[in-house]
């Protein structure tokens, strides 16, 4: 199985994302923002960072990168896509996920280990977790406050598309403590915290994040 991770100018977490993909047992494939080529990958991860300096809005310019045209087309045909932090912001700006990520309500850059509840373990990215499991992975961002219209929030909640929720306090004022969501199919998932930084207890607060990458592998092996 080949899993790609996109590098935009200003992406920070591509190396850790590729490392996490490899640690799960998949082949990690670097993808470049300027190449309209997904290199026959079976899934794509948009890593965190500050693509294009977050100028204009976080993710607003990255969505127009040549590689994103391919990602959007493939995602609409069913390619699993995971957006982490800035990648989540890019997916929202690209219209693959609803809502938007705004400045943290306390205006601080938040950097800490964060407990999350897995609200939906039926997506290709979360099937390794028990329903309702609580995991701890790093959170580090300035624009993490998930916001959407009330009707969109109702839809997300009603359809089980809130995938992760903050527990132990809301770090950024996101609506309904939402940390991560999916599209209607469940194949496109975005979250603000960083599973790729928590794949090994030596270098992270836990190895809880590896489950997201292992989940994807299960999905393809069983398909």
């Amino acid at each position: 199985m080949r899993v790609g991770a996109v590098t935009f100018p200003g992406t920070l977490d591509d190396s850790d994302t590729l490392r996490a993909i490899a640690a799960s047992g998949a082949e990690a494939v670097p993808l470049w923002h300027g190449d309209a080529d997904l290199k026959q990958v079976d899934a794509v991860v948009l890593p965190g960072g500050f693509s294009y300096g977050d100028y204009l809005r976080a993710g607003a310019i990255a969505r127009f990168a040549p590689v994103m045209g391919e990602v959007v087309d493939a995602a609409r045909k069913g390619l699993p896509v995971l957006g982490i932090c800035n990648g989540f912001q890019v997916l929202c700006e690209a219209g693959l996920l609803p809502g938007a990520l705004l400045r943290n309500s306390e205006l601080h850059f938040v950097c800490r280990d964060q407990w999350l509840k897995v609200e939906n373990n039926t997506t290709p990215w979360t099937s390794r977790y028990d329903a309702g499991a609580e995991i701890i992975i790093p959170l580090k961002n300035q624009d993490g406050r998930f916001t959407a219209s009330q009707s969109t929030v109702d839809e997300l909640e009603g359809e089980g598309r809130v995938v992760f929720r903050y527990v132990g306090g809301n770090p950024n004022g996101s609506v309904n403590h939402i940390a991560g969501i999916s599209d209607a199919t469940g194949r496109i998932v975005g979250l603000m915290p960083h599973p790729e930084h928590a794949i090994d207890a030596l270098t992270g607060p836990s190895d809880d994040g590896l489950g997201m990458f292992l989940s994807l592998l299960d999905q393809v092996v069983s398909a």
């Binding site: 705004l102 400045r103 943290n104 309500s105 306390e106 205006l107 406050r145 916001t147 004022g173």
Partner: peptide, 9 residues
């Protein structure tokens, strides 16, 4: 209807 913490600050 959108919270504007920067404006509030």
């Amino acid at each position: 209807e959108i919270l504007d913490p920067q404006g509030q600050a």
